[in-house]
């Protein structure tokens, strides 16, 4: 059975411009991976708590999960998703949904100014799709039909929260060497916070795959180039 579906256009950017501390300060902040918002509120820095307070939460979901880290990006890496082609692994994707047609989780994302900013599809696109399409089939369809569908990439603004659900988006390749701070809150009914909520290195993806990026050691911060 076919259904009419709208591939969403550019999401809302809510709230005002948020000033970030110096990179040196951001380097020293604890990094969180799938941490509960309470955990971050307890163990985060004042600035991280301030970011939580500034997040335009809807409070419609059971849990709020936080990811927060800093990255040292270069033109040979990609910040947040593996750029491997092929079935279900194209660059355009939707986050954390089982059903591509259902708005499940609500994502609030903010990053510092960088050339590598997440891109969203700019304008709504009406399509007719199989009703039982899986998320992997949906990703494949979007990536294989990017041009015929008329997907137009539009970068999110830095220093402002972007709120999205099942919006099609992709990471972009840095055009220069740059730091990027990444802070994402996920309002969800389907994910739970991890056991290891704080972690001691951020990661990036290269053509060879996953790579350790910025590492916190006792007494020092190490940048892996």
């Amino acid at each position: 059975m076919k259904i009419n579906h709208t591939i969403k256009g550019f999401p809302n950017q809510i709230g005002t411009y948020i000033e970030f501390p110096d990179v040196a300060d951001l380097l020293l902040m604890p990094m969180f991976a799938s941490a509960s918002v309470d955990y971050v509120y307890k163990h985060g820095t004042e600035f991280q708590k301030y970011l939580i307070d500034k997040t335009p939460l809807t409070n419609k979901k059971k849990d709020v999960i936080v990811n927060a880290h800093i990255q040292f990006l270069t033109p040979s890496v990609k910040a947040s998703i593996q750029r491997i082609g092929g079935y279900g692994n194209g660059e355009w994707h939707i986050d954390s949904s089982v059903d591509p047609f259902e708005e499940r989780d609500i994502c609030h994302l903010i990053t510092t100014k960088a050339t590598a900013l997440t891109e969203f599809n700019a304008n709504p696109i009406e399509v007719e799709l199989e009703a039982n399409m899986s998320i992997m089939d949906y990703r494949y369809f979007i990536n294989e039909n990017e041009d015929p569908l008329g997907i137009i990439p539009k970068k999110m603004e830095p220093n402002k929260f972007t709120t999205f659900t099942n919006h099609v988006h992709r990471a972009t390749t840095p055009q220069k060497n740059e730091f990027r701070y990444f802070f994402r809150l996920l309002e969800t009914d389907s994910f739970e916070s991890s056991n290891d909520q704080i972690y001691h290195h951020s990661t990036v993806f290269t053509d060879e795959g996953y790579k350790k990026n910025i590492e916190v050691n006792e007494g020092s911060i190490m940048i892996h180039l």
Binding site: G219, S220, L225
Partner: peptide, 12 residues
Amino acid sequence: HKISIYFPAGVW
């Protein structure tokens, strides 16, 4: 291929 930044008080 590493750069390490040290602080006197210690990051820890």
